[in-house]
Design a protein around this nucleic acid. Structure first.
Lengths: 144, 144
DNA sequence: GGTGGTTTTGCAACATAGTAGCATTTGCGC
DNA sequence: GCGCAAATGCTACTATGTTGCAAAACCACC
């Protein structure tokens, strides 16, 4: 529609995965990149709507799914049935997550992988470990 | 409906929580007690139907919810949107779970809590840690 | 810059998981 | 046995996620 005078890192990130540069895809990745914590579909949808980007619920699901399959983003299941999405900073998402039980926010704790090489009963082949810490985040902890 | 000649441990467990001994509640807890791995609502419903226990989907939800609130069972969110339930052997459910990525089964690994007291960024108040190990279970690992 | 093929979007309908309200039943104290 | 409160079962509803297909957008090529 206009000249692309703002070459966001999202575009190059999408292009690096062999995907097409589309409005929705760039906007979603931009939102994910700017967010400090994992977001749900609904939150991303609201943010998308706030940016004036026309979108569909299904498109959002497929876009997020594509980002996860491309390794750009990663998804995780929270306490309720809402899946949350975040950008995968490093290659493997071998990092812990902190889930605040009060505000429900999920933050990625990069560079915080404990020794999970525990003694497996035998026969079990460990592929990856997912550690979720529950408690109160700094914001909610102070207001307690 | 007949005389209770088999006083299952489920009954006393329910009574200890101050709950009423009902058909559904005893049967559900019995199934959970007998199962080695966590079960979904659907799996419990099938097992309930297999035992000839008349039940409703909503009743099952509420029964499971009551068991969780009473501390008898514990729930966790899997990879998909289906919640899984299992009996809480000890008091706090401070144990790890193993999720087989091939058959989708979730097993509770009792007595397998690693040192998760990692260095939190500060301000975060850790309440409990949930560790989910992903990989292949002995059954699926052998057939690979 | 135009054209064509393929991907992506958008729409509608569907599928599954979980919840709410309320009348009826049932367990349990009395 | 009686009565009350808890638990069940029913319908309907919400939320989350999926599938199929036609229209539009993106990109390669000319």
């Amino acid at each position: 529609m206009s000249d692309h005078t703002h070459p966001s890192p999202a575009e190059s990130l999408i292009a690096a995965q062999g995907g097409r540069i589309t409005r929705t895809r760039v906007a979603v990745l931009d939102i994910l990149l700017a967010a400090e914590q994992s977001l749900t579909h609904d939150e991303i949808g609201v943010a998308l709507d706030d940016k004036g980007i026309k979108h569909d619920r299904v498109t959002l699901y497929r876009t997020l799914d594509w980002l996860v399959e491309s390794g750009v983003a990663h998804k995780m299941a929270g306490d309720d049935r809402a899946r949350r999405f975040g950008v995968a900073a490093s290659g493997p998402h071998e990092h812990a997550h902190f889930h605040c039980d009060r505000c429900g926010k999920v933050v990625c704790l990069e560079g915080l992988q404990p020794a999970v090489a525990v003694n497996l009963p035998g026969g079990y082949q460990l592929d990856r470990a997912e550690l979720v810490l529950h408690g109160a985040c700094p914001t909610c902890g102070k207001g307690a």
